[in-house]
Design a protein around this nucleic acid. Structure first.
Length: 137
DNA sequence: GCCAACGTTGGC
DNA sequence: GCCAACGTTGGC
């Protein structure tokens, strides 16, 4: 099982919308590195749902329920997407500030490569994040 | 609102 | 194939 973090601007697609939809295609990614990360996702993998720009915090957990398939909204045909399902909100949202303040999380692409919108998280980092978020999955 | 980082496009 | 110009993302 692998762990991931996916970003969304709440003004575009928020966690509350994710909860309301329960399941949603993660479409609109137009970056090869992010797309390659989605290609590596397997059903049953967990991901943090992060609010970029406004909020700047991890607000919930989702699970991958459909593996990489073509994103029909991409007219070039180059990019795909996965489907994710809402699992639960974080007990305590984890702010970017708190993540940056934790030396154990300094290698997260969220910190190192702020523009990447889909990124892997290592198992030990995942454990730390869930602990910080007072969340059990 | 600004700007750093970085990806993409297109001329050569 | 290089690189300048430009666009986008996202933190601050």
């Amino acid at each position: 099982m692998a762990f991931w973090l996916i970003k969304s601007e709440p003004s575009g697609y928020s966690w509350s919308q994710m909860v309301q939809d329960h399941q949603a295609p993660w479409d609109g990614v137009r970056n090869y590195q992010a797309a390659n990360n989605m290609k590596a996702m397997k059903c049953g993998d967990y991901a943090c749902f992060y609010h970029s720009n406004q909020g700047r915090e991890i607000v919930g957990i989702v699970i991958v329920v459909k593996e990489y398939y073509p994103d029909l909204s991409d007219s070039s045909g180059r990019f795909g997407m996965v489907d994710v399902q809402a699992v639960k909100p974080m007990g305590i949202p984890i702010s970017l500030k708190a993540i940056k303040a934790n030396p154990a999380l300094a290698d997260l692409p969220l910190v190192r490569q702020s523009r990447l919108s889909v990124m892997p998280i290592r198992a030990h980092e995942w454990r730390i994040l869930l602990q910080m978020g007072n969340t059990v999955v």
